[in-house]
């Protein structure tokens, strides 16, 4: 059982999480987010996730954070994933399958080179 929070605890958690997710504090070198809403899963996001888990396990990669998230909004191009390398803008990949995932993992996640053929774009959405 976790302790009940007080208002000031929120910023503490936020700061801790920000450090982790922004890859600043060396928690990881790259972060891969697979977009798994109902649409994404039915388009095959789970297969992508399995492939990535397999790759990370097989190649004993230690410094890649694999995480999931909800729908990214563009249903017609599912399954999608976002690859973020430390200190670089995140890149969104669309219309994925196992083969493309392998290429992206090898070239971009490990090799640092964006796979332009499968990429939709880089950067983040405008949040107001």
């Amino acid at each position: 059982m976790m302790a009940k929070l007080k208002p000031e605890d929120l910023s503490r958690i936020a700061e801790k999480m920000r450090r982790q997710t922004l890859l600043r504090e060396g928690a990881g070198r790259a972060k891969v987010t697979v977009h798994m809403g109902t649409c994404g899963i039915s388009a095959g996001a789970r297969k992508i996730m399995t492939t990535l888990l397999g790759l990370i396990d097989q190649q004993q990669v230690q410094d890649v954070i694999l995480t999931t998230s909800g729908c990214a909004g563009l249903c017609s191009r599912e399954p999608m994933m976002t690859v973020e390398i430390k200190d670089k803008a995140p890149v969104k990949y669309v219309d994925l399958d196992e083969k493309k995932t392998l290429t992206i993992f090898t070239d971009h996640v490990l090799g640092g080179e964006i796979v332009t053929d499968f990429a939709l774009g880089m950067g983040s959405e405008r949040v107001s």
Partner: peptide
Amino acid sequence: PIPKLSDI
């Protein structure tokens, strides 16, 4: 180069 999301 691939486009920026903010340009799509």
